[in-house]
Design a protein around this nucleic acid. Structure first.
Lengths: 218, 218, 218, 218
DNA sequence: AATGAATGAGCTTTCATTCAT
DNA sequence: CATGAATGAAAGCTCATTCAT
């Protein structure tokens, strides 16, 4: 039976292969095809490791045609990163929209976070590994969303601490640890594994709760 | 006061700047200088985002001179990744060399893992982000070590489960979650933060124990 | 007060900005607009320094639309150069149509030549600087007109010499010197200067007469 | 017999073909060869009409090798224009270094100016036609020299007017007219013509004196 | 009359690498 | 040990032009 240990330790950046862009955010026609191809290439090889000739070939067009749709290679990445951040922000904020209880909120956030990293593994890898390739002003709005996502998580934990539901010294540190766990799911999750996305999301939510709920000294 | 939330969410790949190679593994003279410069560049910009001109300029030599020391750009990365993996394997195996008790072993492993990602943040970032840029045969020995490291962690958790010290359904999943937490420390840790490396290592070890020790249904 | 010295020495090819095409020769509608925009661009940046994208953008149409009006970029230049040469030939021949006396003819020719280089400065700059960019057969008829213009001037001087009104060894050399003076007016004339076009034309005519009338040894 | 009228009216930008750079200013080896080739191409076809592939082919090297010697195509032009302006400034200032009398100075200036446009016809054509292709800061020092050259001429005429040797209303206008005559020599002079450079220079000097010496009303 | 989409060919520039010295 | 000069290949991008609509 396929198990995590075999899969998590490959040379490839990620196991997933299908470039699933959020459908609503995918432009129609050639523009969309470029985005999908860029997603695949940038996820696998990185932005600087992918050439626009590869990109054009993957789409089945000329490099000149690329430039009829995007003004530069940078802009393809910028667009992907924008879409990625908007998707995550939308999912996380939707997940807790009607949830007040910190424990339930944390469960919802971690669940949504994990699902996102499975549903859009390539996009998550691009977002997490290629942000540095953008010019600062291209990255700005993405960083803003990233911050809001992190605050959602950190505030939830803080609320739980205030509540006495949670007991943890540094909520932000716990938030970062939990987010770190979730983020790497994009790199290793493989549908051939013995748990479904739901099961994985549930377990990770329990891990998160284990961390924040602990009663311990220090 | 500087806190994690401010720091974890930058565009840069990592906060650390000093290219600290394990001293024993650093060659003397120009060879070592090339390695240090490669470490800095590859950590910041990625392998494909760094040119050998930049590398030579950072060292203060000609690109032609580079080739008197390393046969190719690839080989500089290969060497860095080799050093990185040997360092981590050495540290992890040393950490548990004399420790039998699963709880103590897990504490030691997480502690060593966190310390490594702080002490050699750039190296860790290169190792974790640039492995895909190598030719498969150049990556092979690194992957072997990486596997052994993971098994050390997974086996420790399995032992604890066998022991009834830990209670967790899927030890490998817990191992991967814990390793994920630790790995990202390289990206965000900043000495200006309010905890020392020791304190952070201790907290992360507790997080790990929270995860594996939990008694819960599901 | 603005004076020539300040103005004549700029980096730009010419001071004038308004693309005044001879009205009779300007086609109506989009065709005319393309010609005007081409005039401005080719005068400022040269034919090879201007792209059809710039041209289309200046007109406010698509590059594809350009091709509904002109079969190629070359043809826009060819048309401008044709118009320019026809304008100059028409003006020069009209200027001397009813004038017999060599002195009066020379005054008329220089006056018309100077006025042309002021009235249609951009066109003159294109005509004088971009002819080489045409294919030889596209340039042929323009060269014929140019020759006729030059012969008008050279013959006028020759007539004056035959007449003993002028006294100059090489009428063609004088013609070339005089034409050279006039041609560069297109590059530097600026309405802010302290002389009107008429005054400038008059002075240049006197310069020309000074040159050809001189009684001197050698 | 070849005469001016036949020659002055060609499609080509200039008749001269040999790329004579001022020897002292020509770098040795490949750098110099690139400069010579650039001179020929830019004079004939303009900066934007010449590709670096043509340039490299003319030198007999790869385009990549070009960039070992000049950082960009722009810089080749900048260097040519710098050399051209320094040569002209040096020649003009040397020509009048020991000459006090305005008439003699004007003769010397025009003579030097004409000789320059014959000796370095290609360079003069590049300098006079391609300045606009530079970025403003690249053109700045050339413009300064150009200004100094013009002032030398204008001041000489002004001195002659103050002296009562010359009698002209606007010395700067006369200066511009005279300079215009001289500049175009680069375009049409051909050694096959019936006058030597010396003879041409002498005649043009007389033309200049005719213009400024005239006693006339207006 | 005008356009959106496409293209082959070309652009300037940079890449990693080699080699005689 | 180091370099200056060179290179083939490829990079990102723009060129003038076409064509179905």
């Amino acid at each position: 039976m396929t198990h995590v240990g075999e899969i998590a330790l490959r040379q490839r950046r990620l196991v997933a292969k299908t470039p699933t862009l959020p459908q609503a955010a995918t432009p129609p026609g050639t523009r969309g095809a470029i985005l999908q191809a860029g997603l695949t290439l940038f996820a696998e090889q990185g932005f600087h490791g992918s050439s626009i000739r590869q990109l054009a070939a993957a789409v089945g067009i000329t490099t000149a045609t690329l430039y009829a749709h995007y003004p530069s290679k940078d802009d393809v990445l910028t667009e992907l990163i924008r879409i990625g951040h908007e998707e995550i922000w939308q999912r996380l904020s939707a997940a807790v929209a009607d949830v007040a209880d910190p424990t339930a909120r944390l469960r919802a956030l971690v669940g949504a976070h994990v699902h996102l990293h499975i549903d859009h593994a390539l996009l998550a890898v691009v977002v997490n590994n290629e942000l540095h390739a953008l010019h600062p002003d291209q990255a700005e709005s993405a960083l803003t969303l990233r911050n809001k996502c992190f605050q959602l998580l950190a505030d939830t934990i803080s609320d739980g601490v205030a509540n006495r539901d949670f007991d943890i010294v540094d909520p932000e540190l716990a938030a970062i640890a939990i987010a770190s766990m979730n983020m790497r799911v994009a790199n290793w999750y493989d549908p051939r594994l013995s748990y479904t996305p739901d099961q994985l999301a549930t377990r990770y939510a329990e891990y998160a709760l284990d961390i924040v709920r602990a009663r311990r000294p220090i």
